[in-house]
Computed example of a mutant assay.
Amino acid sequence: MLDLIVRALAWVLNTFLPTPPGRHRAGNTPPPHIVPPPPRFTERLDGAASALVRPYVLTPHERRHQRARRRALCLAALGTDTGPSHIHGVRVGAAR
């Protein structure tokens, strides 16, 4: 009885849902799409046209500000507020 139900269900599914073409199915398969390699870079770079200043090199003034920001972040992680004394031109007092 179970075999009859399985065969009937398989027939109904094959009737209403045709099998999709897949990789392992027999049939016409299109040829594989081959991507050509990208063209090689043949031009020479002009070293005089590029800037010789490295963008990550900081001036002493920028280094001082970066150190102050890192110190404030480290102290804030410990619970100490070292925020600016002026915010939008208004003097900010210490929290009490």
Rank of each mutant, 00 (worst) to 15 (best):
R96N: 09
G47M: 01
N28C: 06
Y56Q: 14
H88E: 15
P38W: 00
R40W: 00
G89S: 06
A77F: 02
V12F: 08
L4H: 09
R96L: 10
I5L: 15
E43A: 07
A49S: 14
N28L: 14
L17E: 04
A10Q: 14
V57Y: 03
P21R: 14
A95P: 13
A68F: 01
F41E: 07
N28S: 11
A51L: 07
P18M: 01
T29E: 09
R44T: 06
P37N: 03
F16T: 15
E43Y: 02
A94F: 03
V12W: 08
P36F: 02
L52Q: 11
L13S: 13
V6T: 14
R91S: 09
R25I: 10
V57E: 12
V90L: 07
I87P: 00
V35H: 05
D46L: 01
I87Y: 09
A49T: 11
P20I: 06
G93L: 10
E43D: 03
A26K: 14
H61A: 13
T15R: 13
T80Q: 02
A72I: 11
V57G: 00
L75E: 09
P30F: 03
P31T: 09
P60W: 02
A76S: 12
F41D: 12
R40C: 00
G79D: 03
R25L: 12
R69G: 05
L75Q: 10
P32H: 02
G22A: 13
L17A: 13
R71M: 11
R96H: 09
R70Q: 12
P38L: 04
A94R: 15
A49V: 08
H24N: 15
A72G: 07
R67C: 00
R96Q: 13
P32T: 09
A10E: 14
N28G: 13
N14W: 05
